[in-house]
Amino acid sequence: MTTLEVHDLTRTFGDRRAVDAVSFQAPGGMLTGFVGSNGAGKTTTMRMMMGVLSITSGEVRFGGAPVTRADRRTFGYMPEERGLYPKQPAIDQLVYLARLRGIPAAAARTEAMEHLDRLGLAERAKDHVEKLSLGNQQRVQITAALMGRPRALILDEPFSGLDPAAVDGMVDLLREHTARGVPVLFSSHQLDLVERLCERLVILRTGEVVADGTPAELQEAGTVRHRLVLDSDAGWVRGVPGVHAVDVDGPTALVELADDATTQRLLATALERGQVRELSPVRPSLAQIYREVTA
């Protein structure tokens, strides 16, 4: 298990701090989701991690030591807005990219064919890439990143433009790599997907990490809300000190409570007014946490 981590990673473009003292970990054997709105600094961070963009300050560490060029050569990487050589057969460019990473030609060819075979693209291996559908081109791109048993995977929007079945197929592929202890960091806009797939989550907002942890940790750290269900209209809860009514709908109210004493006071008041059918904590969804932390 080798952990990929960044410490105080910063990048400025002129006066603008695109990435500001970002620190987080992508532990080996886990899928780590990297989320944030457009322009939050995800791509800039990933490009610095891959050494494609120079680092203004801070450090990228792999297995506890500063990452080296030789390390990065063994990483699988999918840049954003990527493409392939349109007029070259898929198999040829997979072999070429693998050979640049030092994989012998014969081994690269065998492995590329195995991958294409699994993806159902074996008989199209010699077709020019421009003749493949966009989904199939994306499959060839991920294959390029997965060649030669990479020691870490950094994938920028690997699922964009894929249908759900294709996403599942690709996730299965990625799980094979986490199963052998490799850290996988991927960025995405699709929160539901990230929530379903990731063991860890890093949320970035305007160049800063605003949340980092397992989904459960994030949910606990998020603002806990309570649902109150009465037998009559619950409009009166708006007047109780320390209670913030998020939503009131007839006998049901969704409230945020300042502290435990407020909870007890609310319950007592409710019981005075009639029957209380339910008072329970509500765990926030990741989408809700995301909106909270990036608001």
């Binding site: 891959m50 840049p79 990527r82 493409g83 349109p86 990219l97 640049l100 030092g102 990143a145």
Partner: peptide, 11 residues
């Protein structure tokens, strides 16, 4: 344009 250069640059 195809960002292949980023993959190549890491290799």
């Amino acid at each position: 344009q195809s960002r292949l250069v980023e993959i190549i640059a890491t290799a």
